[in-house]
Design a protein around this nucleic acid. Structure first.
Length: 272
DNA sequence: CAGGTCTCCTGCTAGC
DNA sequence: TGCTAGCAGGAGACCT
């Protein structure tokens, strides 16, 4: 399940493959991936467009084209692979055909989404990017900013950290890691956290994300940036999917918070 | 407005 | 061995 570091890794991999390349044609094999335009518009508008840049906001990829922005979210299992043949697989849903290769959007669970916008549109003021907060590891998501948000939120801190409108980039895995590092129980009420807690969260989020980016993203089960390119950060996880606390050796507990599988150490992580 | 629940999907696993 | 029911999950839709 791609989180900010995985998406950043995908972005960097894709830049090496498609930057300044021109889309010759597009094949759509499963149309519900495309959100805000018809399949015909999607294909016709993309034909002939060159990939000018690839940006990222939170977990969203933003392909900057000559005349359009293509905003892509990988959700659970979305991946991009490049091939030179045309032997499409069961889960290859959208294929971007370039001169000497094709780039396939592959998504087993079909949860990923793509939005196409005219370049005259300010995409940061439109859905879905308008509701994406600052990257968790950037200066804009400051302790002061988080404090002003957190004091109004009366729900578990785990849910708040998963809320991409507060700050973006953390998913289920990294939130567990961040809360472990900050010694906070995932069900702690967000508004009960003090300034030190928020500093600890901010510091942990920055460390975890930046380290994972450096290592090429976490790989759990399905993530791959491109062929044979898998991250190594899964070896660094402290609590998520673990049995024993690396600090106190207590048994790691697994509960559900906000409907999500949540791993934590009840000895090291205090409820607030 | 806030909070809760449902939906999308497929692969995997537990249980028989 | 083969079947099915249940589960996982990011984010938006929808309801109260």
């Amino acid at each position: 399940m791609p989180e900010l570091p995985e998406v950043e890794t995908v972005r960097n991999s894709l830049k090496e493959i498609i930057l300044n390349k021109r889309i010759k044609d597009v094949v759509v094999r499963y149309d519900k991936i495309i959100e805000n335009v018809s399949v015909d518009d999607f294909i016709n508008k993309l034909k002939g467009q060159k990939i000018v840049d690839i940006k990222r906001k939170g977990k969203y990829l933003i392909f900057v084209l000559n005349d359009y922005y293509l905003v892509s979210h990988l959700r659970m299992e979305g991946k991009f692979f490049d091939y030179t043949d045309f032997d499409y697989g069961k889960h290859d849903h959208i294929i971007f055909i370039f001169d000497d290769f094709n780039l396939r959007y592959n998504d087993t669970r079909k949860f990923g989404r793509m939005d196409l916008f005219d370049k005259s549109v300010d995409i940061y003021k439109c859905k879905p990017l308008v509701s994406v907060g600052p990257d968790a590891n950037c200066d804009e998501a400051s302790v002061e900013y988080l404090e002003s948000k957190f004091k109004k939120i009366n729900k578990p801190i785990k849910e708040t950290l998963l809320d991409q409108s507060i700050m973006s980039g953390l998913g289920n895995i990294y939130v567990d890691e961040v809360l472990f590092m900050a010694h906070l129980h995932p069900e702690s009420k967000t508004c009960n956290l003090d300034l030190d807690d928020i500093k600890n969260i901010k510091e942990a989020a920055t460390i975890v994300l930046n380290k994972a980016i450096t290592m090429g993203g976490t790989t759990i089960k399905s993530f791959a940036a491109s062929h044979n390119h898998t991250g190594l950060f899964q070896n660094e996880l402290l609590v998520h999917t673990k049995e024993t606390c690396p600090i106190c050796k207590s048994k790691i507990e697994k509960i559900r918070v906000g409907g999500r599988g949540t791993y934590f150490c009840s000895n090291c992580q205090k409820i607030k």
